[in-house]
Design a protein around this nucleic acid. Structure first.
Lengths: 339, 339
DNA sequence: CTGAAAGCGCTTACAG
DNA sequence: CTGAAAGCGCTTACAG
């Protein structure tokens, strides 16, 4: 392996000077800079990650994470993805501080303040769709804090990148799957979470775009359940009762358990149902055949990947290859549910 | 962060002695060993990865990889997963040497010899199902060389672990998907690669197990195409012609392109087809509707994960949590094909 | 059985 | 504009 020592020796300078050139710190005479550059190129010298990491110990780097804590166990998977990396990074001398917050903008603002007080050098956040939060993040980004949005995006500030699903494509995939299952012919009830939550509405939009090309797939109605199982039960029951011709159900967001209960209360109807995210209660409904498939977004991977991006940035100064790092859209059936 | 220096100071010994205790090198008086252990426990001391990695530079660690090179571009994905890690590991001072070999046991034996001569400290291999290879690997494992089998397994020697799919479950998932697509009613033609290749026969077995519970799903015939597109075309054509009632096709292994061509030569038949692995030619067939879905095994991830396992082992001495690290079974439709 | 020193590859002050 | 030294946390000889 080529080291900076060798480069220095070949160039007849000290390692300090090589370091200045590599990291563009300036303070090097142009001619020696060029000479060193040329040697680096010729030897294909790449600084050792291990050396850098070790030095970074002196900076006591800290990464803050703000993850929603709510009824939905989906968030626990995201959290788990983060904790999976905590130990690894601690062995690299990087502290990861995780704050789990309620589903509200103020909690997030409070957590941001707490983390800043603890001196974080980077932030992972699953941001609420709240102007105050967006504004705060924008201000921090301007101050140079690297921020990764995870699972849900806020577009109006300059984050390092977004790690999560492409919700529009998720919706298309749901429609594609339903197309295959129903032979392209079905009357669909749609139960979404919040009509104005971007992630939910994008899924519905993607779904609609796909079926626009399928004349025999039609949407009977779109109802909101506010991600709540009790409401979901009522809404879904009413939807099924109101449309005797309904033979497919698309569950866009949370409240799957409630919808499942509603489905079971119509044992004589054959309603082919698909939903999102394989939380435990959903898995149960897939196992017992109430739901045929769940479309999943790798929440664990989202958590881990968000930290990986910041690690690269803090240690190597590398910016992610894309502004949107989309995780896979996975289709889970009874047979590939437990892996 | 707690360091070995602090532990040493608290115990009133040198870092050398702490090191001996941590790594169970012996040569420490029992009483001081216990004292140090206790302090480690109390402080929850975990050795820094960065420090270890830096020291490992002195050993000039090398990992050898043997990956099949063949007509099938699937193998290129596996290769890519490995090359993705090559640069990262080189920045940690670990050299990764990749040998791409023909589809035959002798080539593999030759590559093993080459890699041993270069002094590898660990091996990733996509092993041929060949007794001579199995024997050689067993001998190396006994000599203490950590070996990871990837993509295909050989069970009769003690590898560190296997990284790849669970082929039986893959087959079940294929049947599950076909069940959904056909409403549980279909006459299926099966075209496999090699009847005696374990990965292929396991998929067929899993498929059969699933449909055993589905009286209206029946297998008309199982034919081999030897992973060859030309043969695949002929075999599939003959299969379709011979069974006018056949309305579903399960492609178990390679030769998908040939089978696709055969399907297109019967434009009046509606044969719902699923297959494995989203190689470029298969993607084309999914886009044009000839094939409805591909079941995929994350080949890129298999390559990367194999190296990760060995990295952990070489640096931290950690053995993988399981003997079989199964990658996800992903179902790809037209809509989630490109991500 | 134990310790002191050197070194892995890098960056960070500091001195000039 | 440049260099020499110290240090990040660990392990490896070597000396005793």
């Amino acid at each position: 392996m080529v080291t900076s020592k060798q480069v220095a020796k070949m160039a007849g300078v000290s390692r300090g000077t090589v370091d200045r050139v590599i990291n563009n710190r300036g303070m090097v005479k142009e001619s020696t800079r060029q000479r060193i550059q040329e040697i680096i190129r010729r030897l294909n010298y790449k600084p050792s990650r291990a050396g850098k990491v070790l030095v970074s110990h002196q900076k006591k780097l800290k990464i803050g994470c703000i993850i929603i804590k709510a009824q939905n166990p989906f968030y626990d998977d995201l959290y788990r993805g983060i904790t999976l990396k905590v130990e690894e990074y601690s062995s690299y001398g990087i502290e990861v501080i995780v704050e789990r917050v309620d589903f509200c903008g103020e909690s997030q603002l409070r957590s941001i303040k707490t983390l800043l007080n603890r001196g974080i050098n980077a932030l992972v956040i699953q941001p609420m769709n709240d102007p105050a939060v967006a504004e705060k993040l924008a201000a921090l980004a301007r101050r140079g804090l690297p921020i990764v949005t995870t699972n849900t995006d806020i577009e109006d500030f300059d984050s390092l990148c977004y790690v999560g699903n492409d919700f529009f494509t998720c919706g298309k995939t749901a429609a594609n799957l339903l197309d295959l299952i129903t032979g392209g012919k079905c009357a669909i009830g749609v139960v979404t979470g919040f009509g104005k939550a971007r992630s939910h509405s994008d899924r519905v939009a993607g779904f609609r775009e796909y079926i626009a090309g399928r004349p025999e797939m039609r949407v009977l109605a779109v109802k909101e359940n506010f991600d709540d199982d009790t409401k979901s039960f009522t809404v879904t029951r009413r939807l099924i009762a109101a449309h005797p011709e309904m033979d497919a159900l698309f569950l866009v967001a949370g409240g799957v358990r409630g919808a499942g209960k509603a489905l079971k209360s119509f044992p004589d109807r054959r309603i082919r149902t698909i939903c999102f995210d394989d939380v435990p209660t959903t898995k149960e409904l897939i196992r017992d055949g109430t739901i045929l498939a769940a479309i999943c977004q790798q929440p664990v991977r989202q958590g881990s990947l968000s930290l990986e991006v910041l690690f690269e940035y803090l240690i190597d100064g590398k910016t992610p290859v894309k502004k949107k790092l989309y995780t896979d859209i996975q289709i889970k059936l009874k047979s590939n549910l437990d892996l």
